[in-house]
């Protein structure tokens, strides 16, 4: 249940960010991050609908790779 998934921030409205990954879009709360620490185009690590950390695009890609491997059961 501690699994967190990287998503790309598309737009921000107050404490809510529209985030996407692989064509899926979700509203994500930014309430757990310092105000102003995220901009559109950044990547965030999302857990149960809340961004828990800002991360780099490279780390986002590496994390997706492991999720893909785990899901395909290799």
């Amino acid at each position: 249940m501690c699994l967190a998934i990287p998503m790309r921030v598309e737009s921000i409205n107050g404490f809510v960010a529209r985030c996407s990954v692989r064509g899926v879009s979700r509203d994500v709360s930014l309430f757990m991050l310092e105000e102003g620490s995220v901009l559109a185009g950044d990547y965030v690590l999302v857990h149960v609908g809340y961004a828990i950390q800002v991360i780099s695009g490279t780390d986002a890609a590496a994390t997706w790779q492991v999720i893909d491997e785990a899901l395909s059961g290799q």
Binding site: M1, C2, A4, F15, S29, F31, M32, H47, V48, G49, Y50, I52
Partner: peptide, 16 residues
């Protein structure tokens, strides 16, 4: 239910 990672968003929900 949850560990720290999950209870933190629950806390954020309450504080908001």
């Amino acid at each position: 239910a949850g560990f720290e990672t999950t209870m933190a968003p629950v806390a954020a929900m309450l504080c908001q």
